[in-house]
Design a protein around this nucleic acid. Structure first.
Length: 437
RNA sequence: CGGAGUAUAGCUCAGCCUGGUAGAGCGCUGCUUUCGGGAGGCAGAGGCCGGAGGUUCGAAUCCUCUUACUCCGACCA
């Protein structure tokens, strides 16, 4: 992508409404534009990152055996009356009326809808288990939206729902999702720690919140320092097994949110306890027949008798993850994207756009990187070097490849690693090989 | 939902107290400078001062209402 044509409205100054660093940087980096309180347009750069995050979520869901579908944003109130949540949900639910005066709503979640779909088609125990997910916009009419997309009213969420014949099966589904979540966040280059959670209005007896540690997190969390060492990708447990050992291992290491933490009875000695701020990016629940029973999601069991299906639901705040990633990875100059979710891998900077040697070298590098499938954003604008460096630091591209007249005379270009600030003067071919490797 | 604020140029803000026909910096356009971490110079475009009503000879400024947004709290799958 050439910056001369890219829609990337970066800001030098910080808009006054932004309080936390991710919100400030997302606005300054031209990722989002607020259109109403808690509602945002995702501009090209932000949308690109959002899709990268969603894609990792998707791959890990698929890997864990979940199947993607897509349910609508607008739902009928009828389903919610069946589950009893139409009244229970309160003002957070955005209720709307269509031209025929039918009661509709903008979905805050999809338990009712998915249960309705599944019960229509799933009639036999042979059809189970099933695990279905979608990545869709949700709306919750928060009284007080804040912190940009971290706590917006409209947000992108991956939510999935497991359906099993019995509690044992449902618990296996839960463990599979537990693993999928650990893998998902690990692949994004961040540490998300599962913490035993209050099951709240959803009910059920098995629930974990996945928390990313970041200084600006909304809540206080406590965990055993061992967590910082655990690496689920290295452990790589067998996803087709029963996952009991794995689950036991990862739930035995202490981790608790403020509400669940009891300082007086904490099993972890003080010197081994990490106290930090955390951002909730995922939440998983096993809740049995809470929805299947009132909505009649019943299958015929092996003995010919009806069985109410056991359910769980699992959410990841995809748009919130984008903000959380920034909270967890930035510096004074701007965002530092982990490689896996970076909107581009390489920032190609032409320091002197009207210099023929610089221009032809950059055009050539750009073509070669593109041909090799490397995502590159090419600053071919006629701007001053300082402005170019500042923009690239701000938008956090992992590698900056700088081409200037001074280096070209010596046959070298500069390769900078955004995260460490480390700079290398390399012969052109060597830099190219490093980026393509 | 309680409390507190803000609304003036694309952005950050001044002007309001003490009414007299709208300002700065950044950004934007053109020229210049030939430029390795948001440089400098010259010229320029851009605002019915959130909206409605009122007071007044005259309102960005004073009064009333209204809308939007922000902050603190409560709330928060």
């Amino acid at each position: 992508m050439r910056m001369s044509t890219y829609f990337l409205p970066t800001l030098k100054e910080t808009p006054s409404e932004a309080q936390i660093v991710s919100h400030r940087l997302m606005l300054r980096a031209g990722m989002i534009r607020q259109t109403s309180a808690g509602i945002y347009a995702w501009l090209p750069l932000g949308w690109k990152v959002l899709q990268k995050v969603a894609q990792i979520v998707r791959e890990e869901q698929d890997r864990a055996g979940a199947q993607e579908l897509l349910m609508p944003t607008i739902q009928s109130a009828e389903l919610w009356k069946q589950s009893g949540r139409y009244e229970a949900y309160g003002k957070e639910m955005l209720r709307i009326t269509d031209r025929h005066d039918r009661e509709m709503l903008f979905g805050p979640t999809n338990e009712e809808m998915i249960t309705d779909i599944v019960k229509t088609f799933v009639k036999s125990y042979k059809d189970l288990p099933k695990n279905l997910y979608h990545i869709q916009w949700k709306f919750r009419d928060e009284v007080r939206p804040r912190f940009g997309v971290m706590r917006g009213r409209e947000f992108l969420m991956k939510d999935n729902y497991s359906f099993d014949l019995d509690a044992e099966g449902a618990r296996l589904s839960y463990r599979r999702m537990f693993l999928a979540y650990l893998r998902t966040f690990a692949r994004m280059g961040i540490k998300a720690i599962p913490m035993r959670a209050d099951t709240g209005p959803i009910g059920g007896d098995l629930s974990h919140e996945f928390i990313i540690l970041a200084e600006t997190g909304e809540s206080q969390v406590f965990c055993d320092k061992q967590w910082l060492e655990l690496d689920v990708l290295a452990d790589n447990p067998d996803a087709n097994g029963d996952l009991k050992d794995f689950f036991a291992k990862y739930t035995s290491v202490y981790a608790a949110t403020e509400e669940m933490h009891d300082a007086a009875n904490c099993p972890v000695p003080a010197e081994q306890l990490e106290t930090a701020r955390g951002i909730e990016v995922g939440h998983i629940f096993y809740f049995g027949t809470k929805y299947s029973a009132p909505m009649g999601a019943v299958v015929t069991g092996p003995d010919g008798q009806p069985v109410t299906v056991e359910m769980g639901s699992y959410g990841i705040g995809v748009s919130r993850v984008v903000a959380a990633l920034i909270e967890a990875s930035h510096d004074d100059a701007g965002i530092i994207w982990p490689d896996q979710v970076a909107p581009f891998k390489v920032a190609l900077i032409n320091l002197k756009a009207d210099d023929e040697a610089c221009r032809s070298t950059c055009d050539d590098l750009y073509a070669k990187l593109n041909a090799a499938g490397v995502e590159v954003i090419y600053d071919d604008r006629n701007e001053r070097p300082g402005a170019k460096f500042a923009d690239m630091d701000l938008i956090g591209i992992p590698w900056q490849l700088t081409v200037g007249p001074r280096g070209l005379k010596a046959g070298t270009v500069e390769l900078k690693r955004r995260a460490s600030g480390e700079k290398l003067e390399l012969p052109l071919e060597e830099a190219l090989a490093k980026l393509m490797g």
